[in-house]
Amino acid sequence: MLRLFFTRLLAVIPLMFFVGTVVFFLVQLNPVDPTAALLGDDASLESIAQKRAELGLDKPLVTQYTTWLGSAIKGDLGNSWFTGEAVTAELARRARVTFSVVFGSLLIAIALGVSLGVVAAVKSGRWQDRLVTVVSSLGIAVPNFWLALVLAAVFAVQLGWFPAIWTKARTESVGGWLFTILLPCIALGMASSAAIARQTRSAMIGVLQQDYIRTALSKGLPVRRVITAHALRNAAIPVVSLVGFQLSALIGGAIFVEFIFNLPGLGTAGVDSVLRKNTPVTLGFVMITTFVVVLANILLDMAYAWLNPKVRKN
C-alpha cells in the first residue's frame, strides 16, 4: 500500500512539469501588459523598459521559460510582480485559508450527504426518502456563490452574527478561526452534500438489494450492524469516487466563496493574477491546485482499494 502511494507520487513529477510548461506558454497569449498596470498609464518608455528588464521580460521566451523552470525545480516559484513577495510564501499563507475552507466544507458534505443518503435508502419510498430526494435535487442546483452571497448578507451584514470582514486577529484562536470559516464552509459544502446524498442513496439502494444483505439478516444481526458493516461498506465505493470529483469542485468553488467573504485565499490571488497578468502567481496557483487535487486523488484511490478487495491486487 505504501509502495503504491510512493510510486503514484513519483508519477506526479512529470505531470507537474507538463502542467507548468503548458500554462507557462498559455499565459504568454494573454494580451495584458503588466508593466502598464504596475507603473500607471503615464509611465515613461524608459521606466517601462527598465521594469521589463527587471522582471526578465526583455529576454527571449525560451530563456524566460528555462529560468523559471530552473528555479521551480529548486522549489523557488519566483516573486510576485506586483508585491515582490516570494510566490511560495504568499501561496503557502493563502493555501492555509483555502484548504481549511475546502476541508471544512468537505467534512460537512460527507457527514450530511452520507447520513441523508443512508436514511433515504433505508426508508426508500417513504416520506423521509421523498424529502431527501427533493431537497438534494434542489440543493445540487444552488450556485455556491449565490448561497454565499445570501448567507453573507443575512447572517453577517444584516444580523451581524458572523464577521463580514476577515481579520488576522480574529483568526488566531482556533474558535475564532472556526467561527470565521463556518459560513463559507456551509455555502461551499451545500451542493456537495446534495450530490453525495444522491449518490449514497442510489448506491445504498443497490446494495440493500444484494443477496449478502439477506445473508447478514439471516444471521440474526441487528439492522444497525447490517447497515454499517455490510451495506455502507460496499455502498461507500462509488461514494468515494464521487468525493474525488466533489473535492475538485470544492477547490474550484472556494474561489467564489473567498471572493464573497473576503478571505485571503488562493482563489482570489489566482483570479487577480490572471486579470493583471501576474505570471509567477498564476503559474504557482495552477501548480499548487493541480498538486493538491492529484494528491487527494491518490489518497482516494487508496481508500478505494481499501474498501474494494477486488481491486487491491492490481
Binding site: N30, G252, V293
Partner: peptide, 14 residues
C-alpha cells in the same frame, strides 16, 4: 481531475 473553474481561468488567461 483538475477543477473545471481553475482550468477555465487558466484558458481565459490565455
Amino acid at each position: 481531475a483538475i477543477p473545471a473553474v481553475v482550468l477555465a481561468i487558466a484558458i481565459i488567461a490565455a
